[in-house]
Amino acid sequence: MTSSGLGWNIVADVRQLLLFPFMVNALRAGTIVAISAGALGWFMVLRRQAFAGHTLAIVSFPGAAGAILVGISATIGYFTAAIAAALVIAAVPRSLGGRAGSSESAIIGTVQAFALACGALFVSLYGGFLNGLTGLLFGSFLGISASQVLVLLAVAAAAIAVLALIARPLFFATVDPDVAAARGVPVRLLSTVFLVLLGCAAAEVSQITGALLVFALLVMPAATAQQITVRPMASFGLTIGLGLLIVWLGLAVAYFSVYPVGFFITTFGFAGYVLAAASRTAISRSRRRQALAVPA
């Protein structure tokens, strides 16, 4: 067994993965991000706010590029931009029914395009960090420092603590906004708090997968889990588990490969979703066939 390259001995491969501090940091960061993205993503998919989530992630790109341009940490740029965008989206008046209206998605789309353009401007103003640009858009795990991991951990812990506090009323307001409002659930406030938490999660994921591939961790695990089971607790747990699995697999494969980590994480997430959707279709078809064959 040589000390480089992928072998058939899994224990040796894992040991090799953990040899370098940058890889240990990447795995730690990936683990933190997978858990927080899974938790927030589960609610995001249920609330059908994927477009808002995507925009929060896109906005984190000019945030990071702008932060680098003015010479502060990209991490601060990611979080500031995403949280500010979350507050802007929350301020857009929703249609009275509580569901995202068409005017909302139009405004979000406008903001998203402008943010992306600003990011491009900041990058060209800074000049000559083409590698950095790829990292911002499509993810990089090489440069994650121990202090960055600490920031990710602190933000994720705070976001998950707040989510745990509001989880049940948020679920109520998501499934049944009218009845929840009649019962005194602060539907509008919960929506704002949730968007801010989602902004935190999107900014975290951006730092691993890049701004364009956040859905790999924000949408794919939740969408896959909700295909597999309709039990809320089970699908929530499954979301976190799937997120961890695809991050670990993606990072491990990317370590032994020359291609970007975002590609592998996204590919594993995509494969999981396709498998779940296909098997669900197959199962419901065979059930229908059985029901037809044996009339009750």
Binding site: A164, L165, I166, A167, R168, P169, F171, F172, V175, D176, V179, A180, R183, G184, V185, P232
Partner: peptide, 14 residues
């Protein structure tokens, strides 16, 4: 789950 929310949906926490 929709029916259960009628009994404790507005309670904070999980």
């Amino acid at each position: 789950d929709v029916v259960s929310l009628g009994s404790d949906g507005e309670r904070w926490g999980v």
